[in-house]
Design a protein around this nucleic acid. Structure first.
Lengths: 339, 339
DNA sequence: CTGAAAGCGCTTACAG
DNA sequence: CTGAAAGCGCTTACAG
């Protein structure tokens, strides 16, 4: 206990200076093979490992990335956390996680806390950032990338899927499938993903000369989505198709339709989601959905972050990954085969 | 950019010493109201925030907890990550996340990396730790708590649910439900949770004068669990009940039974899981399962960690939270009503 | 209560 | 290539 070994201890045992030890443990530094050997041996014998915090203090690089995430109930995010962590680990970085409470104002406090840890970068997943906050990050020289969300501030990098096109594809697919009464379960209206998906849906509908038959707000949350589905199907003129702004809500909608209202999916009503989380492929749902590749979004995020960290004057980037529709069993298929 | 404000800047502006500034920002320290006011004002004007890394270096407390987690596909873990982060945040700590690759040996490297960050404690969720490793942590004075796993080494703290009793309850419930051919889908055999749940099941069966009818290994993974279910139901003498070592596998088993084999659940076969993840309550599964409270497990974990951090000579603790059976629709119910 | 000084464990110019 | 020295931004005894 407390047998804390420092670089000075190693230096003494190896018969070299502290600087030499430092160089041996610094990737690009110059040291003779002889020194390297002596130092490595001494370090191994002593069980020495560099103190990252001390290194961070002097070098100004902590190799910590702050990840702000609001809710892990939507199973798209656990996948993101896992992939982001792994990918960053491969780059020699680690993720410090900050759960933003649902409460609106808290995100600002959270970012201040993150900055206190001298992070090298911030990934804000599914949260919006006040402009004062992004100013603070900018002046602190800490790059921020918005994940699965965009903001007007174009000095902020952002990675999303192409939500507008994704929404439009759903409209086209549903129309091609012969649906005439298309309902939409909206996500939380403050989210750009919600707005973009809905916009795409409406554009697609309009291009086909149609319009939305019904609309309810599910807020991206399970109970709200259930209520939204109940309201939407309460009247006599029920939809024959529903697009839910994400898979998470689509599952809830399907279950209300099937188990509460006794409707058949897709017999009576087609259901389409957005995200393609793993559960969408489970046979109990077999959900037709828009595929949003966590892999590709994470890869872009890491790439942007690394660029911005290495080159502080690099331009912020905004990426929208293409989002193809994944056909499964929860929505009636267009009759393409019979021309 | 780079307008890095230090405690010395604040001190100068407030007309006090650096020590005074430090004291104002240190919870228990003594400072006159006058000094506090001057310093707070100067700090606010300058936008000063203490550098946590610098503080960590001198104080020896980083207020970072390392969390090692192996896989987030089992939706018990995202819940844990979220709750643990929030709870720790409330205590002024933050979570540095480390994804342990599936590869066996890697966990050791990961722990070394964690230690490099001078964490104040480690939570190892669903991973085992070599004894050399736990020795290193001990000698570094870093407390470790195993989460949802136990090890022989009783100098390690561990938080689990009462897996043995949980398994036994499943046996009793299934027997009471009139099942005669009970199959078990095992998790990864290296996991204590797997061993304990199976042991409990076997004990319960034996106490009722029964024994296991079939057993296949699902490794806690989706595809393996599916294969296990297929094998188990391939022969003529199929089980009338299946206990899967966790919910995640139980979902896969249910889907194979229902959608591949055309069996009715619970009409033809009852299915029981373990964990009670949120999806278990979704009507598409309505899974009878053993409830393992993430809330309580997290609370215990945080409590142990805080104790161990504050008092390094505190004894390690091993907690097994009680795990009640949650009755739902996927398993035939015992006929209690008619005596 | 308050300040001057030393030091946490490293890295980084600067000479050699 | 290598070492001595300074310094990263704080906190912590130690005097006062």
């Amino acid at each position: 206990m407390g047998e804390k070994v420092t670089s000075l201890d190693v230096a003494r045992r190896a018969g070299v200076s502290q600087s030499a030890v430092s160089r041996v443990f610094t990737p690009g530094a110059s040291a003779s093979k002889k020194t390297v050997d002596k130092v490595r041996r001494a370090a191994a014998e002593l069980g020495y490992r560099p103190n990252i915090l001390a290194r961070a203090m002097v070098s100004g690089k902590s190799r910590i990335i702050g990840l702000v995430v609001a809710y892990l109930e939507n199973y798209f995010y656990p996948e993101v956390v896992e992939k982001l962590s792994k990918s960053l680990q491969e780059q020699g970085y680690h993720v410090l996680i900050f759960m933003a409470s649902q409460t609106a104002g808290n995100i600002d406090d959270v970012v201040e806390e993150i900055l206190d840890y001298q992070v090298d970068g911030i990934v804000a997943a599914s949260v919006a950032m006040g402009s004062e906050l992004s100013d603070r990050c900018r002046s602190a020289g800490v790059p921020v990338v918005l994940f699965n969300r965009t903001q007007d501030d174009d000095r902020l990098s952002a990675v999303t899927s192409d939500n507008v096109t994704g929404g439009r594809k759903v409209a086209e697919y549903l129309v091609a499938g012969g649906h005439r009464k298309i309902g939409y379960i909206a996500g939380w209206e403050g989210a750009s993903t919600q707005r973009d998906r809905e916009f795409g849906l409406r554009v697609g509908l309009q291009m086909a000369g149609r319009s939305l038959h019904a609309r309810e707000v599910g807020d991206f949350r399970l109970p709200r989505a259930q209520e939204a589905a109940r309201r939407m199907f309460a009247g006599p003129d029920r939809p024959d198709a529903v697009f839910a702004a994400n898979d998470h809500m689509a599952f809830a909608v399907m279950d209300v339709l099937r188990f509460e209202l006794g409707l058949s999916v897709p017999g009576d009503v087609s259901v389409v989601g957005y995200d393609d989380v793993p559960i969408a492929a489970w046979p109990a749902y077999d959900l037709t959905t828009v595929r949003q590749s966590a892999d590709r979004m994470v890869a872009e995020t890491v790439s942007i972050l690394m660029d911005l960290i290495e080159n502080p004057k690099a331009e912020p980037r905004r990426i929208a990954i293409d989002a193809p529709l994944k056909e499964r069993g929860s929505a009636r298929k267009p009759q393409r085969q019979r021309p």
